[in-house]
């Protein structure tokens, strides 16, 4: 067991988001057993240079995970087709209110920049 105060890089401490990779497909929201993920998006038309028609893309307005409710099962991380969700080892986000455990895009993205190696736990 580690005693130096360092947690393993692959620890399942928190779930981080890469908002630019998210297509608002809602798979994580629907598969979450705890119903702890909420997502809001709207469609925008983007015209690429040289394209005949504009294409429709989803713009992510809001993405929250309620870590008070989350059971850290990782189904959302496993099912995301675009790897927009990833495990990070951060653990120091206790809150003075239950509502304070609901984290939005800003916090979820800041964890993505964190020190973890983002790899899955393997038998070693």
């Amino acid at each position: 067991m580690k005693t130096d105060g360092q947690v393993p890089g692959q620890a399942h401490g928190v779930i981080a988001l890469t908002a630019s990779a998210c297509t608002s497909c809602m798979i994580c929201v629907r598969e979450c057993p705890s119903w702890c993920i909420e997502l809001e998006s709207h469609d925008v038309e983007v015209t690429d240079p040289g394209a005949r028609r504009p294409r429709t893309v989803s713009f992510l307005d809001a993405f929250t995970i309620d870590f008070g409710l989350c059971m850290y099962c990782g189904i959302c991380v496993d099912l995301c087709p675009f790897d927009a969700l990833a495990w990070r080892p951060d653990f120091d986000y206790a809150s003075r209110s239950a509502a304070g455990l609901v984290q939005g895009i800003g916090e979820l993205e800041s964890w993505q920049q964190g020190p973890g190696d983002g790899t899955a736990i393997s038998d070693s």
Binding site: G5, G68, C70, Y93, A94, A98
Partner: peptide, 24 residues
């Protein structure tokens, strides 16, 4: 939630939280 019964000062997230999270 235990806060339905007693006032909670700090909520530690995790399922389970790490031992380090307890200290934090």
């Amino acid at each position: 939630g235990i806060d339905q019964l007693i006032p909670v000062r700090v909520y530690v997230p995790g399922c389970p939280p790490r031992p380090e999270a307890l200290i934090a």
